[in-house]
Design a protein around this nucleic acid. Structure first.
Lengths: 159, 159
DNA sequence: GCGGCATCTTACGTTAACGTCAAGATGAGG
DNA sequence: CCTCATCTTGACGTTAACGTAAGATGCCGC
């Protein structure tokens, strides 16, 4: 019977959590500095409880959707002293909806930028066709680009 | 016959360009520091030519689509010592296409984040309906939100 | 000659989320 | 006892694009 790594009574070292969630010890200490985590201690060493792990999970989820650590902190603060989680849920709901609005606005900015760039690309291609078609990117160059990007990804993955 | 503000032989003070393009003198000096602009001088004072104005226009266009000043600089450097603009156009084309790819990737990230947030919102709303429906945002609150956002925009616009 | 305005240079401050040493403590293994 | 590995606490560095004084210069009108 393999040990369940997520038993509620389990504890974790800083490295274990870092491995599990692919982050660095520095990051966890930083979150602690900001009051987002408050692990127990065994002597000097940090001991993370199952609850700490859950909080970390929320922190990383928040980061993925673009919340700042400060905003995540506001939500997390309600986790402890809460009427059964309702206030925290209400605050989360507000924050989430705000974030959705902001993200949709960002997406509009991006779409506008892409449009502007595509207009620019078309203009440039027309002019290059007329003057220096030899400078136009060709299919071979495009393959080259793709290969470079894949190499980049492998490189990152290898680290 | 009104003076054409864009006659090629015209020159501009720093403030004139700032007013026209809604930026600050500090920004123009910063661009100069970075080598993106090299206006002439009249004593101590900067004198911007029509070409400088064109370069500034390109800088701001580049910024709008998310190019860094360094990237814009690479493109601009080819504006001067160029075989009729072809090399510059080819480089711009590459940069633009790179930027389009990057922006599309960003948009995917945003879409994923929005999806994740919407799932979270649904969950939270369900739970709040079951436990504390009084904490749910109501239509009146929504109006309030809209009004606040409009006030914010007017405030910014008034500046 | 003086107030007022525009301009100049220099240089430190800002923001977020860590990265990157540096230097020391602690326990396990050989 | 030595060394290694892991942990700790500082504390400064990084990045981008400016913002924000502080203090000097120069011109215009009166």
């Amino acid at each position: 019977m393999p040990t369940d790594l997520r038993r509620p009574q389990r504890t974790y070292t800083i490295r274990q959590l870092c491995l599990e969630f692919k982050c660095t010890p520095r990051a966890l200490r930083f979150y602690e500095d900001k009051g987002l985590l408050t692990p127990a201690r065994d002597g000097m060493n940090r001991v993370y409880s199952y609850k700490d792990r859950a909080r970390l999970k929320l922190i990383l989820q928040g980061k993925r959707v673009g919340l700042s650590l400060a905003e995540i902190g506001e939500i997390l603060d309600l986790y402890d002293l809460d009427d059964g989680g309702a206030a925290q849920m209400a605050k989360s709901l507000r924050k989430f909806k705000e974030r959705i609005v902001a993200l949709e606005s960002q997406r509009e900015d991006i779409d506008r930028a892409i449009q502007e760039l595509q207009v620019g690309c078309n203009n440039l291609e027309q002019k290059l066709i007329a003057t220096r078609p030899d400078l136009l990117p060709r299919a071979a160059d495009y393959d080259q680009m793709l290969r470079q990007r894949l190499d980049g990804l492998e490189h990152v993955a290898a680290k």
